Amino acid sequence: MNFSSELVDLLKNKKELTSDNKAADAIPGMNSGNLSKIRKGLDGRHLNEEQALYIAAECGLNPQWVLVQLAEEKARSEEAKAVWSNLAKKISKSVVAVALTISLVFCGFQSDNSESAVFA
């Protein structure tokens, strides 16, 4: 399954849409014919940046990661795909690090004078 199709599935789950036709209606600039091509991988059809960013916002996804994943999907050479894939991994690691830092700052941690910390 391609990344564009995975994004559509995420949107369908998030908005509890029961069909691709309803998903196509929810995505800016999308129609059921184009969505069908995305699903089948035909004509090199992918979501465009606006559509991918819309889905990212609706689903609470990191927009930078989404655009990099989309660029990887659209890349024509294996070398370009590898570069985009590497960048997506770096972004994912950064997001995890930031989330962990925020969690520690806002939730803190408590120590019960034992050797292990307990997160609040």
Rank of each mutant, 00 (worst) to 15 (best):
T101I: 02
E79P: 14
N48T: 01
E79T: 10
S103H: 11
A71I: 06
G60I: 01
V68K: 11
I27F: 02
M30Q: 09
F106H: 05
E6A: 14
N31D: 10
K90H: 02
K90G: 10
F109T: 12
M1T: 07
N48D: 09
A82D: 14
S19W: 00
N21P: 04
Q110E: 12
G41T: 03
D112T: 05
A23Y: 00
P28H: 02
L42D: 15
A97W: 05
L87A: 08
N2W: 02
N13V: 11
D9G: 12
N113S: 05
M30N: 07
E72Q: 14
E6G: 10
N48R: 03
A57H: 11
L104M: 11
C107S: 15
K15E: 11
A23I: 00
G41C: 08
V96R: 15
A80N: 11
S111D: 05
R76H: 15
E58G: 13
V95F: 03
L10H: 09
V68D: 09
I55H: 11
K15Q: 11
F3E: 08
K93L: 14
K89C: 03
A80I: 03
A71H: 09
L67Q: 11
E73S: 02
A71T: 10
S111M: 01
V98R: 13
G108S: 03
I102L: 15
D43S: 15
S5A: 15
N31E: 06
S92W: 08
N62A: 12
N62V: 10
F119V: 10
V118M: 09
L11F: 04
G108M: 01
W84D: 09
A24E: 03
F3H: 05
F109Q: 09
D9V: 08
L67A: 07
K89F: 06
A99W: 02
N62C: 14
L10S: 12
N113D: 02
G33Q: 15
E79K: 12
R45W: 05
A24L: 02
G41L: 11
E50V: 06
N2V: 04
A80R: 13
L53V: 10
A88K: 00
L87T: 11
A120L: 14
D9A: 12
F106D: 05
K90R: 06
I38S: 09
S36D: 08
S103P: 02
T101K: 15
E49F: 03
V66Q: 00
D112G: 13
S111Y: 02
L70Y: 06
V118D: 11
E78F: 04
G29R: 04
M30A: 13
D20W: 03
V98A: 15
L100T: 14
R39D: 11
I38W: 03
L10R: 14
K15M: 08
L87F: 07
L7Q: 00
Q64N: 15
